[in-house]
Amino acid sequence: MTRGADLGTNSVRTRTVLGQAGEPRRGQAADGELGVAVARAQEDDEDAFSVAYRMVQPGLLGYLRGLVGDDAEDVASDAWLEIARDLGRFRGDGAGFRGWTATIARHRALDHLRRQKTRPRPTVLEQDVLGLPGVHDTHEQALESISTEYALELVSRLPRDQAEAVLLRVVVGLDGPAAARVLGKRPGAVRTAAYRGLKTLARQLGAEGVTDDGPRTLGESG
């Protein structure tokens, strides 16, 4: 299986975040800071807890948006109740804290979905999405930004396992093994799911309003 395949001359590049090291590209220094904050919070340092909260919540909320859409804030509140209550049990560093909190958030999200018995979608409808100015793409310019709504809409259309793999790796910032643990799956399966999800997203984003300059090198076999 080829990983992190370059998508030819298309304007959207997929980086090998899923490459050999399996480490998220960003945030390792931030994870060190997070680990310190968590340790202090476990010693009852309230300010440190706030620091940890602010470092984790953006990614957590993004992940939950992909899972439960507009109910993400409510589910996140439930998750933080449990995180705060069980904080003393946690053992690990900053990256581990991201994995631990993502697991808790996921459980709350699944409970929420079971109660709802349906899968709420992001509120943006397809026709609105296509009209959003959030995607900037021309023949020459590369894709510079995606609107939140558009990104969530695309992610929500992926198969569930791919959506979660992409969200955990890219939005929460977990490495391969941690994402696999959160999802309860083999690392190889999660790696494949994330790769396929990103590939689909890249194709969808690259295809928006742009003619292909050449064949894509999607030599994926897995």
Partner: peptide, 10 residues
């Protein structure tokens, strides 16, 4: 793409 997604979804 990862940068864009992260920035958009977080």
């Amino acid at each position: 793409l990862e940068d864009l997604l992260a920035a958009a979804v977080r």
